[in-house]
Amino acid sequence: MLIPPPRKANQLLLDWYTAAGRDLPWRRTRDPWKIMVSEIMLQQTRVAAVIPYYQRFLERYPEPKDLAQAPEQEFLAIWSGLGYYSRARNLQRAAIQITEAGGFPETYEEIRTLPGVGDYTAAAIASICFSLPYAVLDGNVMRVISRMTLEKGDISNSSVRVRLKEHAQRLLDPKRPADFNQAIMELGATVCLPRSPQCLLCPWREMCQARAAGVQGELPIKLKKRDPVKLAMELFLVEKNGSILLRQRGTTESKLAGFWELPVARDMPAAERGECLGSFKHSITHHDYTIEVYRASAAKAPKGFRWFQMEELENVPVATMTRKALALV
């Protein structure tokens, strides 16, 4: 597992990135708060989905102090639909820590102590905002380095990840760490794709060992994920005078705490079921749901429920499953 000469690899990659890199809103700034928001939002979420949330979030919370003092229901409403809501809560905790410290931390070690910030996010912020020579290692980078070095170990193995991180660190251009990190992530996101890698467009095609061996489509190696559990669910749409009935999850619940959602049948055992409005699919971690939505009627709202006008839903956190259900109406 050899790596190419770093200087040659750097120049090829950076030249390619200058010509082919996408114009993304977070690439127009070196503000650590704005970079942190983008990196947290991009965790397990596609770029196209993040962009509008990123712009709305920073319009409302342009500085850490703005989020630090925001009510939870308010910032969760802005985040609603993006998923993985612990990210938003961690981001507020980080904003509080930054505000109390009097400014954003400027070393990798200090950045790493912020809530919700792991090795990858700390390296991204440190390199992009403070030009510190820390290589990032996300899924895209692991794929690129695995193919470049013909890594045949399982990338879910910690020792393999350490090896890939060492390769990335050796390749990193210490004079341009921000550009290098963003370039290698861009290469993985747009060219060195999981399926059907676009090798002819790759600046590293002549030095890629997986391509030379004809196995680029087989790497990286990762143990097969377990099959998802398939479940069925029924949601009730109860309406009255133009309002709909929603239930709020308890603040101690492990998932979606404090979010509002349509009731399921067990929430309203006395409700009368009406017509089926349709169905849709929804996935949460290792669970695939088939969800049917029914009109229903009830004499009164159970405890913990509240009537909402549709326009009010923009100002409260609403579960993504409920948003999908309401789209059927």
Rank of each mutant, 00 (worst) to 15 (best):
A299E: 14
M321T: 05
T121P: 09
I51P: 01
Q97S: 13
G118Y: 01
F236H: 13
Y84D: 15
Q309A: 12
H167D: 09
A20I: 01
L219N: 05
P263G: 12
K8T: 12
V264P: 09
F236Q: 14
L262D: 13
L58M: 06
R87I: 08
L150A: 15
M310Y: 09
R56I: 14
E253T: 13
M1Q: 05
A183D: 02
D31C: 05
N157R: 14
F130L: 06
T251K: 10
T190L: 15
G274Q: 09
M1E: 05
P32Y: 04
C202K: 05
W260H: 07
R306N: 09
P203T: 01
K8M: 06
A68Y: 01
E151L: 02
I221S: 04
E261S: 15
G214T: 15
A213L: 13
A319S: 15
S127M: 02
M321V: 07
A270Q: 08
G21Q: 10
N10F: 00
P317S: 07
P133M: 01
G304L: 07
A88C: 10
I128D: 01
K300V: 12
P228Y: 07
L82E: 06
K281D: 15
G217Y: 00
P228N: 08
N315F: 07
R143D: 04
L172W: 00
M321L: 11
A122S: 12
Y289M: 13
P32H: 05
W16V: 13
W307E: 05
V229G: 01
A325I: 11
R295I: 09
R306I: 10
V162S: 10
G188K: 01
V160L: 10
I244F: 15
A232M: 12
V117I: 14
A325C: 03
F305E: 05
M321A: 05
T320A: 08
L326Q: 08
P4M: 04
R87W: 06
V47K: 05
Q248N: 07
E261P: 15
T107D: 13
F75A: 02
Y54D: 00
D227I: 14
G118L: 10
A299S: 14
G139K: 04
Y54M: 06
P228D: 04
F308H: 07
P302Q: 11
L313M: 12
T29A: 07
A19V: 03
V329L: 13
M185G: 01
S297P: 07
Q97L: 11
W260D: 07
R112L: 07
S243W: 11
C276N: 08
S243A: 11
A327I: 03
R170T: 08
L246T: 03
A123G: 04
I96N: 04
K324P: 00
L76H: 02
Q44G: 11
T252N: 14
E63Y: 06
A183I: 00
Q169V: 01
T99H: 02
Q182E: 13
E218V: 04
E292M: 14
V229W: 03
R7F: 13
A101E: 10
L256A: 11
L313G: 08
L219I: 00
P6E: 00
I221D: 03
D23T: 10
K222C: 11
